[in-house]
Amino acid sequence: MSNQPRQAIHDSTAPSTDTRDSRMGEGVDDRFNSRLREAFGSTPFILTKFDKFMNWVRGSSMFMLQFGIACCSIEMMHTYAIKHDLDRFGAGVPRASPRQADVIIVPGTIVSKFGPRMKRVYDQMPEPKFVVGMGSCTISGGPFQEGYNVVKGAEEIIPVDIHVPGCPPRPEALIYGVAKLQERVANGETSPVVVKPYELEEFGDLPRDELIDKLAAEIDEEDLVMRYNWADSP
């Protein structure tokens, strides 16, 4: 009969049924009791503050944004790859979308054209979010600090929690930086949000001066702009 399951199909599900049966064992089903629970003894509860628990969870499972800028991103890839394997520390899942990421590692030189884009990517990440600045360029502009086009450090644009110095830092150094961040997150510390010189603004809100008048024909009032001022930044 066509409405009866054929024997072959029936048999094919048998192995998984067998496995389930054998795992359930005799008596009461205790498949979900872990070793940890055994260790707790008769009272399978931990008393802790919810905030503290959440911070511990946050620090132990961090999703990194897959974000490459310059030379440091090569060392960052080495940190994710074998030998260094950041995943061992509960912080190594690179997410391609900022909407799924907790941590952004800023690996490289930020130039004026990329600044607003990076700000936009950062803004798209859900709270709470953390930033690791990798390399000298994200601290001060590094070897390119005197360049006419170079933003002198990531902190001009977004708040940074951990700075990892080096040009580029070794993977070990980045792992140390991430571990430090985890420590901070677990302790509930966050970096202060400072007022940043390169905030994005609507073009219409900028105070009128010679430069604005000159560009008024090219830029819409509502367009977001960054005012890049080489001389005034530190």
């Binding site: 607003p116 900028l206 430069l211 005012r227 001022n229």
Partner: peptide, 21 residues
């Protein structure tokens, strides 16, 4: 504004960078 490898370029002048929708 200006051409940076031009001899008369003034690096200290402010610049505007847009992020158009």
């Amino acid at each position: 504004q200006g051409h940076p490898l031009d001899l008369s370029y003034d690096q200290d002048k402010p610049q505007l960078v847009t992020l158009a929708e």
